[in-house]
Amino acid sequence: MDDEPGFDDFVAEQTAALLRYGYVLTGNPHDAADLVQEALVRLCGAWPRVRRKDSLHSYVRTTMARLHISVWRRRRREHLIGEPPERVHHEVFPRDDEQGVWEELAALPRRQRAVLVLRYYEQLSDAEIAKVLGISTGTVRSQAFRGLDKLRSALSSAPATHGSMR
């Protein structure tokens, strides 16, 4: 579209990185693709307003993080297929312990997972995470702590179950 200069380039350059981010945020390729698509549709709508900003990269990532924790996706899927497989764990790691971490991540509430992804994948500080998710730094800290705590206890309590579900 002529009225959206630069948008096509942005999509071409950024989509692969956004899909990687979407994948670690959601844990499965379907949700990652849908999340990226939805975020880009919204970016397209906001493009005339935001295209001159330096922080387009963080704008769209913020949109994705907030969309994800806003339960936007789960609702859509539930409407489509009734009582669905809500969390789908794909076997992606050759090593059982890493597969275990990946699967337990899927069991975390979305906000906790988002905080961990922003901290350990995006390497953001707690103050930056607070801004992205629109919550206080105290909440970031406690969500991160709770998330890590759950991973730790889940991984120590049931190491034998991982990898046995193939």
Partner: peptide
């Protein structure tokens, strides 16, 4: 655990959809 988490997340990113 945090090290492992960083590793797992970057590892998973490589398997993201194209």
């Amino acid at each position: 655990l945090e090290d492992q988490l960083s590793r797992v997340l970057s590892g998973a990113a490589h398997r993201a959809p194209q």
